[in-house]
Amino acid sequence: MPASRSSPPSQLLLDGDPLGKQDRLVLEQYRAKAEHYLCACLRLNNGSNVDRSPGGMLYVRQWNNLQYASSAAFLLTVYSRYLAGAGARLRCPDAPAVPPSELLALARSQAEYILGRNPLRLSYMVGYGPRFPAHVHHRAASIVSHKANNRFIGCMQGFDNWYTHKRPNPNVLTGAIVGGPNCRDEFRDDRTNYVQTEACTYNTAPMVAVFARLHNLSTAAAEEGCRPGAALGLSAKCR
């Protein structure tokens, strides 16, 4: 499908821009900003890098940091595939030719951290693994279901009766990713600790694509008998 002036930047990057120099200049700005951030995540940006926790989580800020780790994982995943398809490498100030496999490896490390490969051995995706947050800051998850108690629960009543109680949430918010730990990989599973326990759709949404890509590569490697690690390295056989 040919690109048009109403096309999103991602489509123009993939399909090319037949409409002239002005559009190409705008796209170059998008690409420059994306590559600057990718290099910062990879710690190859001449000292201007994204911080990491001791356990390896990309760290931007205290409040709901996993929104940044998951978004970075998404960008790393998409860009690694783009580079692999173009036969290109990422140019960073500290490394002139970063292979796509390095981007995907970092994306995978963030996914694994979220799912429990971290110092606390805690999955930050609710409902996944043997240990996950049980006191998610979420009204529907923390208030007993209507089937269990059909009495009317008003707004303030829900807050007064359920917000501060210490029991685990009666409803498991399966698939939600909470705000996550601080810069020292510390996490307090408390409903009132909304900085860390609030579940947000923009935490989970980017990881859908990351998990889909990793699953696709893993399946391809298994079906085609690729050597271990070939899918991560984006070999021609397992791409």
Rank of each mutant, 00 (worst) to 15 (best):
P18G: 13
R184V: 08
D15A: 14
R188N: 09
H135A: 08
P181E: 10
W162G: 00
R108Q: 11
L14F: 10
M57P: 01
C92D: 03
Y128P: 03
A111Q: 06
L66S: 00
P206Q: 13
P228A: 00
R239Y: 12
K33R: 13
L76D: 00
L120V: 02
R213D: 14
A86I: 05
A134K: 12
V172P: 02
W162T: 01
T77D: 04
L58F: 04
L14Y: 13
F74M: 07
N149L: 03
S71H: 07
V210Y: 05
V50M: 13
N149E: 09
R31W: 06
T174Q: 08
R43I: 05
L232N: 08
A231P: 03
A140G: 01
L38W: 00
P96E: 03
S48T: 08
A230R: 02
P168R: 07
K147T: 08
P133F: 07
V26F: 13
F211D: 05
D189A: 06
S109Y: 02
S6G: 12
F211V: 14
T201A: 11
H36G: 04
K33N: 15
V98Y: 01
M57H: 05
H138C: 01
T174Y: 13
S70N: 15
N118R: 00
G229K: 00
A97Q: 09
L83S: 06
E102S: 10
N46G: 06
A97D: 09
P100Q: 11
S80L: 02
Y163C: 04
S101G: 11
L106K: 02
R81W: 11
G179T: 00
T192D: 10
A73P: 05
L75K: 06
H215I: 15
G16P: 05
E28R: 15
S70T: 13
D94I: 06
C238L: 05
V136N: 01
G55L: 03
L234A: 06
